[in-house]
Design a protein around this nucleic acid. Structure first.
Lengths: 191, 191
DNA sequence: GGGATCATGTAACTTGTTACATGATTGC
DNA sequence: GCAATCATGTAACAAGTTACATGATCCC
């Protein structure tokens, strides 16, 4: 149930239309909770039906006409409630590790190229985050109200750093592996 | 489309019944792709219908009777195809960061306790992974065919290390924050 | 008036979650 | 025979993905 609350947060920061939200989910918010415009419109409809947000008064609300939303008191209360309520971390899923484990059984052909490609993508993302950090949180820009934003950005930087290091290490490991290593049978139990 | 391929991998490692798979998804495989028994039974049905796996011959296949599956040639081929095909990394989503960003708008009340709780959970998971590493990949146990498994485990260790460090840092940051810091308005754009 | 683009949607599908149902086996 | 547990499922729903539809506006 994070998407509606991410939208409430975005709308509290600044009332927006669906498309404006979509654009904000392509950059800052999307760095930790991505969403497509279809999801956003659907969720806006629900939030309005639930009385958490309302469309700012304008002309006839039809297709193709821009429609901006603002958060109502009930919406702010719901967001505060959700934010302070305990939540377990979700089990994480990553297809790359499924593929690696599969390649221990059916062979590693082809996967190495994709690891290299992923490395490039993560290096690019890391650089992007670091540029944002320098621009927005450089020396003398550490206002207290920005600390939380900075903390979130640091998580992004640290995670991309993890990926670049792990992928670099994995590729080194692959060079040492016998060509197209293929093993069968149960691997160590891991727990 | 990772779940069917994770199941094919597991069945190639060792033919199993639905419940046995469920148990394996609770430990080793579940560390990077979790699944409930309902998902697994549904997927087993599809994989069988697609001709990728088959039930090992036994008595009448009814409810309550154990049913084991093995992978057919077509299943192995599909797994090899999927494993070697390029795949983009999925956009990652983490509710904790949504909550942190929300707390910059509606206040940080309550979230600190949950950060502490998450820290404990991640420390516990990290310890578990490290014990597995020592047991299965300790000195003298680095057979080439285990290298891929070790690589995956290292990713888990590194990720949990990231979490414990980041959460520790975040909690320190919270102590420095003015009580129940609450800011309004658009934060820095971050991109 | 026609194409680009801005803007809001619908529909169908896949994947993951939650709650519940039912049969078989084992130990008492 | 009955409770516990092993084992396989169904149903309903929530969330995310992909493809497509349609109206409004701007600029030539």
């Amino acid at each position: 149930m994070s998407l509606p609350h991410a939208i409430l947060t975005a709308l509290l920061e600044k009332p927006s239309s669906g498309l404006e939200l979509t654009r904000r989910f392509d950059r800052s918010i999307g760095y930790f909770w991505s969403a497509t415009h279809q999801q956003i419109y659907r969720e806006l409809g629900k939030l309005e039906a639930d009385g958490y947000i309302r469309a700012l008064p304008s002309e006839a609300p039809t297709r193709g006409r821009k429609k901006s939303y603002e958060v109502l008191a009930a919406g702010r209360e719901e967001l505060a409630r959700w934010t302070s309520a305990p939540q377990d971390p979700r089990p994480w899923r990553d297809a790359l590790f499924v593929r690696l484990r599969a390649s221990a059984v059916v062979g590693t052909t082809g996967i190495e190229d994709d690891l290299r490609r992923h490395l490039t993508l993560h290096q690019r993302q890391l650089r992007e985050y670091e540029e944002i950090e320098e621009r927005d949180f450089g020396p003398g820009k550490d206002a207290p109200q920005d600390r939380l934003q900075h903390l979130i950005l640091r998580a992004g930087i640290d995670l991309e750093t993890f990926w670049t290091q792990w992928l670099t290490n994995a590729l080194t490991e692959f060079e040492r592996l016998p060509d197209d290593a293929e093993s069968t049978g149960e691997p160590p139990a891991h727990g």
